[in-house]
Design a protein around this nucleic acid. Structure first.
Lengths: 342, 342
DNA sequence: TCATTTTCTGTGATCGTGCACAGCTCCCCT
DNA sequence: AGGGGAGCTGTGCACGATCACAGAAAATGA
């Protein structure tokens, strides 16, 4: 540590290390960046000088010089609780953190609830503070994706973007095909009055899962009855509301496909309170394979979203974009997990 | 936007703006930092040049020059879910975000679960990337606080640190006094066999709330019975486990003080399942006044922690430290909220 | 009118790195 | 012996901003 005139500690620089080790700045810099072309003796000298001075690299200076920041943002543009209450979010976040850790890149979580937050963080990001952004799912009207894309920030969105205006990278599960498979499973169990609780239709995964449901009804020659379909909000409480509406609109329903496990928990709860037995009276199929799916009785039959692979792919694609590759979209298959509820 | 030889867009710099506006770099810089000593005409020219070029400040360059980064980290050194499932955490996080927003400072949430993460983030922080850290840490053995303090990073911890080794700033609620008030309230209701579910005793709020409980027992001339005290983990599931142990160890218990609302939810649940009525058979007092406290029946009587003021104070103290003031500790009073459970 | 302050402007120097370049030594190969 | 490459080292410049300073222009005072 060096002490300057006013008594405040000034952090040691690469120059202090060089002087301490008796070598030049260039040698220290080379040592820090991989150690190529540094003699063993010089390397040892630098190493001990670093320990002695307590040197840590000044990332602002490095970033200014290299143009990189070696950090990545995970941006949420919706209210926090919405994500925090969802165990899947934890899985996704942890997955991304771990993948990035393999490249020694720290992940910064940024929460943008208000427009004011959004502006502040967009400015923060576009001013070069991160190399790229992982964006978690957003309403179709959300301008953040377009803004970041226009600013040339590498970007990967989780979930298939609704508006196909700008060409941004995304990683999504096969929502439509997954929904088809689940509804086929319900029909294969002999059900004929199959309801559905959709996600918000302006969010990724909303319309596609509904489309899959309709596909299979048509395929089986069953009519599409609007009374059997209610829009939810991907939250537990929304599932409860939706279930109550379905029960009053279509009391003869014998199965229901719910577009997320969290909502399905609410649905099962309301069905049981109303005296129905799951799955005897009404079969319930979820979507996500959330950790919560096995926390209730009966354990939820659901479509597993491959969150491990999703996070892996998101990170891979982001790093690829940072390295200069073009944006691309990728859709990963889902998997039917049969448990007790259907 | 300027296009360089290789065709890649290079972001415009302050120099490009200056050329476009027909002024010097200095004038642009002054305009950006408050606009003092800039003539109205020059100001307008710069303003339109910024719009035209799409200029955004390069924060690395600015930080390198000023030594500040104008951003703050909110660091969690415990598993994510532990915080995310707690509604109080959301209140606290949102409060800090809002206070900082008033100073136009973005908040970066950092999650350090593994030692590896901790190292990576500590390095990231000490290399100058943020001006200060709000730490929601916890276990007494956590070395992060000490490390950051030693590195000279302004730091405010939420909760009173257990080990009083290093002198770090903290903001805490009056745990001991709050616990006293709650236990007095239980005794005032005529209860005599008052149990307690504590928090982890190596975490802030753990030992102090237990101490307050013992204070009041002594004050009332009641014996301290170890069978009436079980250590929990501040989580709902931990509350359930603790309640089961209490019921078997001390079936004659007529009240219980639970050191957090989240645990209290679990306790109430188990008590009701065991056929006890709350509050008729057993009174339950919580701690926190979490949003969850009113979500159950009976609504929870609890000690309100002033999370608004806590976040306000944390931010104020952090900014003060960044400005050069010395660290300090502050303890805020709690408030008894009487509802139906006691 | 001139002196003096106030407002405004441009020009280096600087922050701490990485990187290109040139120069040095040493070794190997013909 | 001479040429060529590899390994290693130091030096200057660039990155993009802020800031101190000096000087010009305008406003103010006597």
């Amino acid at each position: 540590m060096t002490t300057s005139a006013n008594g405040r500690r000034r952090p040691p620089t690469i120059h202090d290390v060089a002087r301490e080790a008796g070598v030049s700045r260039g040698t220290v810099s080379r040592f820090l960046n991989g150690g190529h072309y540094v003699s063993p003796a010089a390397g040892r000298a630098v190493e001990s000088a670093i320990r002695k001075t307590g040197y840590v690299v000044n990332r602002h200076a490095r970033s200014l010089s290299t143009g990189r920041s070696d950090s990545v943002a995970f941006l949420l543009t919706e209210p926090q609780e919405k994500f925090f209450e969802d165990p899947n979010f934890n899985v996704l976040l942890r997955g991304c953190t771990e993948r990035l850790a393999q490249h020694d890149i720290p992940l910064l979580l940024m929460l943008a609830e208000s427009d004011d937050d959004r502006r502040r963080l967009t400015r923060y990001i576009t001013s070069g503070h991160v190399d790229g952004v992982l964006l978690l799912s957003n309403h179709s009207g959300d301008p953040v994706a377009a803004e970041l894309h226009d600013a040339g920030i590498p970007l990967v969105v989780c979930g298939k973007p609704i508006g196909r205006g700008t060409k941004v990278s995304y990683v999504a599960a096969a929502d439509r095909e997954g929904a088809q498979e689940m509804v086929r499973h319900l029909l294969a169990g002999g059900r004929r009055r199959v309801g559905m609780v959709t996600g918000p239709l302006d969010m990724p995964g909303g319309p596609d899962r509904l489309a899959g449901y309709r596909d299979v009804l048509a395929e089986a020659g069953l009519p599409y009855d609007p009374a059997l379909v209610v829009e939810g909000d991907f939250r537990r409480s929304g599932g409860e509301r939706a279930a109550r509406r379905l029960l009053s609109q279509a009391p003869d329903m014998d199965a229901v496909f719910v577009a997320s496990d969290l909502m399905a928990l609410g649905v099962v709860n309301v069905l049981q309170q109303s005296g129905r037995s799951v799955p005897d009276d009404i079969a319930v199929g979820g979507f996500d394979d959330s950790p919560a799916a096995t926390a209730i009785a009966p354990a939820l039959t659901t479509m597993r979203q491959p969150f491990d692979r999703i996070s892996t792919e998101m990170v891979r694609m982001l790093l690829a974009q940072i390295a200069g590759e073009d944006p691309a979209g990728i859709i990963l298959p889902t998997e039917l997990v049969v448990r007790d509820s259907a």
